[in-house]
Simulated assay, not measured.
Amino acid sequence: DVFENPQHDYTKSLLSAVPKLGEMLGKKYPEPMKLLGENTKSSKPLVGTDEVLLEVKNLVTRFPVAGGLLRRTVAQVHAVEDVSFSIKRGCTLALVGESGCGKSTVGRSLLRLVEPLSGEVRMAGKDVLKLPKDELRNIRSDMQMVFQDPFASLDPQMLLLDQVAEPMRNFSTLAESSIEARVEGLFERVELPKSFLRRYPHELSGGQRQRVAIARALALNPKLIIADEAVSALDVSVQAQVLNLMMELQSELELSFLFISHDMAVVERVSHDVGVMYLGRLVEIGSRQAVFSNPQHAYTKALMSAVPIVDPTKKVLEGDLKFKQIPSPIHPLDYEAEKPKYKEVTEGHFVLTSDCGY
């Protein structure tokens, strides 16, 4: 009865905040969620542009495995294997897959927080992977990151004012006298009161801390934000508010997002394009509309069947889920990975046809 006929306004608002798979069926572009009791600033679809902002080609990232008495490298973890995609200005590409599939490593590789083995990452006509340290530092001002756990990514001993101001001080983008006013403006943009400027992270809730992390990412006016599981640790009502905030900022500032998530329902709501990852490879990629209305790869279908449904009468039984055990991504040093082969299903919609272990 609670799910079918909720009576209290708070129960209704909670249920309205849960992203539901299939809500965006027939809609070409993402749009903010309609939450009960809240005015969404912009409920218009986010059209984006056709201008390519970031292009990734054949990205490979591996991690050494040490062994023996001398702790020599005896094997490698193939975390990202021959991944290619592009992100358009003002658009969101979502990378989705289960834990350990390599999606977060892709995001970190783009910023060279981990060093890729090979490939190309082109931003503003430059290959990020070949830039010397000083040029890499400059281009990072255009590419910022929002991490999954804001309590871990914010310094517990620094005032929030100083944490959001720190990127501007590092890059000397503003005079010291103008920085506080700029931080106040950023707090207003992410809907936080000015009184929070002189608070510490532990004095805020999880959703408020994530808004601070978003404000810090916006401080340098970036063109691309990599959101690594940025809402997965939040409860549903706060998650919906933060998702709407990100889409409103995208509409106002023409931001591009690489949205990394394991939640297909959230991905369907926010993305223009979707890449599904399994064991370090893209197994399917295309427009959100194409991937969700016509999933081709068995793993994509399995992910969609596993999305929780807010209706006990339609729940999926564990026996109905057709997930296979994940093979080990660790291979000997002389192992040569097979080149991926893709089939174009419709224009821009590709599915992996070579073996990926699933």
Score class of each variant (00 low, 15 high):
34 K>C: 06
35 L>G: 05
36 L>M: 12
38 E>K: 10
38 E>W: 05
39 N>A: 08
40 T>S: 08
40 T>F: 01
40 T>G: 02
42 S>C: 08
42 S>W: 01
42 S>N: 15
44 K>G: 04
44 K>R: 07
44 K>Q: 08
44 K>E: 07
45 P>S: 11
45 P>A: 13
46 L>Y: 03
46 L>C: 12
49 T>W: 02
50 D>P: 01
50 D>K: 15
50 D>Q: 13
52 V>D: 14
52 V>H: 08
53 L>Y: 03
53 L>V: 09
53 L>G: 09
54 L>S: 05
54 L>P: 00
55 E>D: 14
55 E>S: 14
55 E>Y: 01
56 V>I: 08
56 V>H: 04
57 K>N: 07
57 K>T: 04
58 N>G: 11
60 V>L: 04
61 T>G: 06
63 F>Y: 09
63 F>H: 01
64 P>W: 11
65 V>L: 09
66 A>C: 08
66 A>I: 12
69 L>C: 03
70 L>P: 00
70 L>R: 12
70 L>F: 15
70 L>W: 13
71 R>C: 08
72 R>N: 11
73 T>A: 10
73 T>C: 11
73 T>W: 03
73 T>I: 14
73 T>G: 03
73 T>R: 14
74 V>G: 07
74 V>C: 09
75 A>D: 05
75 A>R: 08
